[in-house]
Design a protein around this nucleic acid. Structure first.
Lengths: 337, 337
DNA sequence: TTTTGAATTGACGACGTCGACAATTTGATG
DNA sequence: CATCAAATTGTCGACGTCGTCAATTCAAAA
């Protein structure tokens, strides 16, 4: 492989001059620059980042740590958001997956340290609180889709409360008064936050939250959940037209989809007989069910890109106070409500 | 940051000896090794990969290039498959996304070359043929979910023909004779391959492939597709019980889901009145629809891990002939057929 | 105890790049 | 034409690691 010296020899200048051209430093005569650039092209010279790194002690690489990425597709959007920003700022992205195992996590951090990574994005699949001690690794870190309350670590998360509020608001604005909510597993933080938002909107509108219409669609310990939305929805809808809810808000699009199947099994039309609102906006579901789903979008792409931006700010030395940033979850209206 | 020399000083040996311990080289007395390891721990020494890289000219980093990752979640599984293998073999994974733009692709390859990447995995979202000239970049490459017929480049793809065959076989084995197939966009390679497999199974069973039961569920130019599965399925099922198909095979799980909605809108029960088979096994859909979907699984995780394995073989100098490896698509039986 | 071959350890320099600073060239001014 | 500051280019060495090869230590055999 060609080195900077080969280029220098061909261009008839010193290697240092080539270095200057490559790095776009000022004070190079245009004549010299042209000759060097020509030599670079002719030799197809490509700088050796490792060597530069040894010298400058900065890697230009960002690390992304994810836990169990696999089961939900959200992560792709997060990765894409990060990726776009990273490449815009001419850095590279090293990714690693812990599979949720803590010894893996140790290994991953170690690898990142060996690479002298400039900064780390630590992303989780679920929006939840984690334990994180920034002093252990000593690499600038931004948490993504999770947060640490015990220490001041920058974090970017979705505003689930806001999303729950948006869903309820939509129902109320559409004139619904009999509103049910089939939630995520109550053990999950997002479930609690979304319900809070829901309850706030209901309270603001002077509507009563009926206990028997507020039901978990997913139950069981984390890692051993059972999806019960279909049964729950069917039960909920098996009463007379004047008794049952006119709209069901749900904890995610999968639950919403099961509600649609429950409605269909009872010969109820969506949205005429029963309106349904999802959450997450997994487009594979929300755009494909019939009718398409009105749902609250989780801004995963934005979470990823914003997290990357904040990491760059951090690296640039911006002394913005560490804080948790919540991105809004906008309602996407389609046909189901 | 501590260097190998700091460790050497503390342990009272030469830096070269520390290097030997770090790299697990033989012929170190256990006494010396212990002293060095102790010093490493005490100083929390972490080797500088960049420096090692300059010296050895090997990076220990694999690059993954993806095109438009975003729209389907498959890619996550591919990434996970790759990731698992890469970390098992103690390497690192650099990922980059071209967004399908060719100038981005150029930039990405360039970045990888700057990093002196050991090898590249080039993954596409759709299973399709690409143009790829391995001599341009001169980095060992394995194609993932795509292949180049113009040159001998190793590739790992799903065996779509086999999957179409498996779906048809399942239908036939279950005693169905009136079998419909709502396909992917016929412009897509996978659509053609799956149909071929379907037709082969039908021919083997002596069953006639009825033209009017072989319909595209997705139409339009690539990038501007329209999903028409619901209408197509509804039309297909709007005939008398003795006339209509008893099972619908589909091009993917989204189409299958729309078929289920079509069936529901006609008050047909799945699978009693009409059985439905999906393709892809997007578990977010296949496990959540009611009843859960019998479907053909795309082995994305295996594609990723196998591709990584083949790349490592390539790097190890195995002169296995470049060839296209097709991984089987097994049928996953659930409730819908 | 000496010999000897193997095992262990160390000295030195090179990898490709860039920072620090010195040397040279340039061009405007008197 | 001499002067001088600014612009441009070059020299040298260091970054942290490991390959090469030489030096030293060790242990068993003579």
């Amino acid at each position: 492989m060609q080195t900077i010296k080969d280029v220098a020899a061909l261009a008839g200048v010193s290697d240092r001059t080539v270095s200057r051209v490559v790095n776009g430093e000022p004070n190079i005569s245009s004549k010299t620059r042209a000759r060097v650039e020509d030599a670079i092209t002719r030799l197809n010279y490509i700088p050796n980042l490792a060597a530069r790194m040894v010298r400058t002690n900065r890697s230009g690489v960002i690390g992304l740590i994810t836990d169990v990425v696999s089961t939900t597709p959200n992560s792709v959007e997060i990765i894409r958001g990060v990726q776009d920003r990273v490449s815009q700022s001419n850095q590279s992205l090293l990714i690693a997956n812990t599979s949720g195992a803590s010894y893996e996590e140790t290994r991953v951090w170690r690898t990142f340290q060996e690479h002298r990574i400039d900064g780390v994005l630590f992303a989780t699949m679920y929006h939840h609180e984690i334990e994180f001690d920034p002093t252990v690794h000593n690499i600038p870190t931004v948490l993504v889709n999770c947060f640490a309350s015990s220490a001041d670590v920058p974090a970017v998360v979705p505003d689930d409360m806001n999303g729950g509020y948006a869903a309820a608001r939509h129902a109320i604005d559409k004139g619904h008064a009999r509103i049910a909510f089939i939630t995520l597993n109550p053990l999950i933080l997002a479930a609690r936050l979304r319900r809070e938002g829901f309850e706030r909107a209901m309270a603001e509108a002077g509507l009563e939250v009926r206990h028997e219409w507020m039901l978990p669609g997913i139950e069981g310990a984390i890692g051993a959940e059972r999806m019960r939305a279909f049964e729950v929805a069917k039960e909920l809808l098996s009463t007379g037209p004047g008794e049952r809810p006119t709209i069901i808000l749900t904890g995610n699009d999968e639950i919403a989809m099961q509600c649609m199947f429950a409605a269909a099994s009872l010969n109820l039309r969506v949205p005429e007989d029963i309106a349904i609102v999802g959450y997450d906006d997994f487009r594979m579901i929300s755009e494909r069910v019939v009718p398409p789903l009105t749902t609250v979008a989780l801004p995963y792409y934005e979470i990823g890109s914003r997290a990357a931006d904040r990491l760059f700010e951090l690296l640039a030395g911006a002394d913005n106070q560490p804080f948790i940033e919540r991105l809004p979850c906008p309602l996407v209206q389609r046909g189901s409500a």
